[in-house]
Design a protein around this nucleic acid. Structure first.
Lengths: 210, 210
DNA sequence: TGGTAACTAAGGGTATTCCCTTAATTTTTA
DNA sequence: TAAAAATTAAGGGAATACCCTTAGTTACCA
């Protein structure tokens, strides 16, 4: 019996997945949540084998949440749910602990395959996602590509990093302690799912955060 | 008496500047060179106060040469000569030791001002260079924007850095020692005039080196 | 006006990058 | 086939980035 949980702020998606899995005898949906708080509370009580997680939740950055979950509950395997066309982030999500990703309009077969593959401990990689995404976006309006939200200060620090300044130099420039700059760096990297400053700069340019 | 030397592979430019300075009693052109070898040889014998240096020499990367000169002959102040529209590199050249920069089509007044300012030990920054450059490039074909040339291996390493890999990871990937990777990193940074890996990535994207 | 996010910053690490020098070996090119 | 360029790599050290935890202090929003 595979225990599954789902987190998505769109109730339709939540119930949609739930109903698709209802008839599967080897799968049991143990909880559904609409936000990060509910999710974390729920995980404290009972851990599913697989958690479908919307990476575009309104209240929290999906990458940050994925990290938190995989750190606090290593036995829970996260499958990222994604709406959007943004291929570039798929890799980042995987890098940050997710075991797979699924487009929200995935068919039942894909859903089941993802579950069985991940349940076995392997990563589920939808082979033709790029093609799919490409087809989807043809002639459509861009819906909601993942847009990391940085705070005012984080943006300032990011700018300074972009200027090739060191932590010490940034601290001098902004009149704050180097330790504070470090804290901002860490938060920026976390939000962007970057491994190091190179990653920050790549995403900053890509996502036009500057 | 201000001693001036000039390095440019275009003989016209060389003679042009020389002739513009001929009548100035307080300025003496002590040597002119067409390439980096001549320049370095000449510097070993006599150091000028100011060296006009073409940053787009065919035989060597201008930034690297500027670094070498300012390191070996700190008393020589380099003024970068530039043809091109590439504003982004102006800052880099300054960051790498140059005291000023001048468009090759600069007027006599600008030339003299640059010399006197730099001779005083201040940096010469042509205020409206961006505007000038903008006007120049209007309706023109792009001539020869500075294009850093990386070797095959350097490009491979740069790619790996772009993938957010560490030196250790790159060394594993390419089956070479971490020390070799470091050597490549250093060379890439030097060629690009970058201060750190963030700079490398910025320029790599900007210059489409990937 | 109480809760939440943002900003601040410390201690105390480890990992990684960056710098400098030197040099052997291989590959390319004039 | 010499000379030049590229690739390899070492030692050794300094600077910077990254990580984890904890926590006080604003600022803003419902």
């Amino acid at each position: 019996m595979i225990k599954v949980a789902i987190t998505d702020d769109h109730y339709v998606v939540l119930k949609g997945i739930e109903s698709l899995l209802k008839d599967e005898k080897h799968i049991r949906v143990i909880s559904i949540h609409e936000n990060s708080q509910q999710t974390l509370e729920s995980l404290k009580k009972e851990q599913p084998d697989i958690l479908f997680l919307d990476i575009n939740l309104p209240d929290i950055n999906g990458i940050v949440l994925t990290k938190t979950i995989t750190k606090s509950f290593p036995e829970v395997r996260v499958i990222a749910l994604t709406n959007h066309e943004d291929v570039s982030f798929v890799k980042r999500i995987l890098d940050n602990g997710a075991y797979g990703y699924l487009l929200k309009n995935a068919h039942k077969e894909e859903l089941l395959e993802a579950i069985s593959v991940v349940a076995k401990g392997e990563k589920y990689l939808q082979k033709d996602i790029e093609k799919k995404i490409l087809n989807q976006s043809l002639g459509r309006t861009k819906v909601s590509a993942f847009q990391p939200k940085l705070t005012r200060r984080e943006t300032e620090v990011l700018h300074a990093i972009f200027e090739e300044l060191t932590t010490q130099e940034i601290s001098d420039k902004l009149f704050i302690s180097p330790k504070t700059v470090e804290a901002h760096r860490t938060n920026i990297m976390s939000k962007l799912g970057a491994k190091n400053s190179v990653g920050m700069i790549k995403i900053a340019i890509e996502k036009q955060l500057l």
